[in-house]
Design a protein around this nucleic acid. Structure first.
Length: 424
DNA sequence: TCTGGGGTCCTAGGACCC
DNA sequence: TCTGGGGTCCTAGGACCC
């Protein structure tokens, strides 16, 4: 039986989410910016047509934006995450197996279906009709090819958002692949693309036909797998949808550079608290954490200082207070006065399941129960009353370091105060 | 005069993804 | 003036052990 893996990908997802609540922006140039209003992370088709590349700093676009009346939004992750969940829940019902790959795309198993292309068209209509989000679907025998099929579906409007490689004969497929730059392949980044081009491999067909041994020798096992997948043999299997994260990171750039240790401490406590919430949500414990701070790497005339310290926790824990204590200890070790810091971050590492804690003779079980109960209460209040309602005092109240968000839309779907208003 | 080799574990850093 | 954040996987090299 022919393997059929589908990749469903939302079209410029963040922009589509914003347009959902401001339909007047349909057909108009729109971008969504990264945290701190730093760079462009989602572009509408109209903005792509203006030649604006991904990840370009927003301040470099000021003139162009004015000339073409581009509407910009700050990132509204509460909104995007909620809409993503709705899309994924709907898609999960339309296939026997789903792997959510990122906030805006997932793989669906379609092997054995009578007509995967027709099913894909129904999926597309259902998401559009029920949730208002446009998606494209690519189908092929491997994940890597399905990604390419999705790319083709997006580039060729006449396909109406669906491209099934399995429905093409090999001559047609190869001709198609010959017209796609090798850098479009999933797993081929900027560096590899340059090296491949130097080897005379510029398009996808050339990579597909290159000898496996040569690819392996020059690029290693990862690229070898990509090569195998391009030849139609699946070696990246559908992942476990419920697999817990092996690492949980929370990091942010500051709205303005900060120098004082006290401000860094507030930020680190805030980030550690967010990471700890995520850790408890997946019912895990962390056995170590990393804390890091960084000066501005784009500043030419100031020295770059970006220390990172690993702090073992002794006992694995999910208690915000213990994690914060460790993070502060690490921060004070790496902090150097007199430098202008631009960013700080905390990563929880060595993550294990909550029930897998090794027991020892000296466990204080009563203390552990108190800790778990306190954290549960904290999370319950914050879930119900809004994130950050109850937090450690050390996070501070003024937050001079908080990020810039000058173009924020409302949290239309997750906050009672910010619901969309039909009429006033 | 001559000074092993192989396995494992850990860490840092790179490349890539969205 | 203003340049994101959160992940995964792999590799190289050092420490350590027998």
């Amino acid at each position: 039986m022919t393997r059929a893996i589908a990749l469903v990908d939302c079209n410029n997802f963040y922009v589509s989410c914003e347009r959902l609540f401001q339909p007047a922006l349909e057909g108009r140039p729109v971008v969504v910016l990264s945290n701190n209003d730093g760079c462009v992370v989602s572009r509408s088709a109209e903005v792509k047509a203006l030649g604006v590349p991904m990840a370009v700093p927003w301040f470099q676009l000021r003139d162009l934006a004015k000339r073409h009346d581009i509407t910009a939004f700050s990132s509204n992750y509460a909104l995007y995450a909620d809409l993503s969940e709705r899309v994924m829940r709907l898609l999960a019902r339309l296939a026997p197996h789903q792997e959510v790959y990122s906030i805006d795309e997932c793989f669906l198993e379609m092997t054995g279906m009578a007509d995967p292309g027709a099913h894909a068209r129904q999926i597309r209509q259902a998401v559009r009709r029920d949730l208002g989000i446009p998606v494209c679907v690519g189908i092929a025998t491997s994940k890597t090819l399905a990604k390419l099929a999705n790319h083709v579906a997006k580039k060729h409007p006449e396909l109406e958002g669906v491209c099934d490689f399995n429905a093409l004969d090999s001559v047609t497929l190869d001709a198609l692949l010959a017209g796609i730059a090798v850098g479009e392949v999933w797993g081929v980044g900027r560096k590899s693309q340059l090296r491949l081009q130097e080897m005379g491999i510029a398009d996808v067909l050339a990579l597909k036909r290159a000898p496996a041994k040569r690819i392996r020798a020059e690029f290693g096992v990862v690229m070898e797998r990509t090569h195998t997948e391009l030849n139609g043999i699946a070696c990246l299997e559908m992942g476990d949808p419920a697999a817990p994260r092996q690492q949980i990171i929370c990091s942010r750039s500051f709205g303005a550079p900060i120098t004082a240790l006290a401000d860094l401490e507030q930020a680190v406590i805030a980030y550690t608290s967010r990471a700890a919430e995520k850790l408890r949500r997946q019912h895990s414990l962390a056995a170590s954490l990393q804390v890091y701070i960084r000066t501005n790497p784009h500043q030419q005339n100031a020295p770059l200082y970006q220390p990172l310290l690993n702090v073992p926790l002794g006992e694995p824990t999910a208690d915000t207070r213990l994690l914060c204590r460790a993070a502060l200890y690490g921060l004070r070790r790496i902090y150097r006065p007199g430098m202008a810091y631009q960013k700080a971050g905390v990563a929880l590492c060595d993550i294990l399941p909550g029930d897998a804690r090794p027991r020892s003779l000296f466990d204080d079980e009563a203390a552990e129960r108190r800790s778990a109960a306190l954290m549960e209460t904290l999370d319950a209040i914050n879930r119900r009353m809004g994130s950050g309602t109850v937090r450690l005092l050390g996070e501070g109240v003024h937050k001079g370091w908080a990020m810039k968000r000058g173009h924020m839309s409302q949290r239309f779907t997750t906050e009672w105060d910010e619901l969309a208003v039909a009429r006033t």
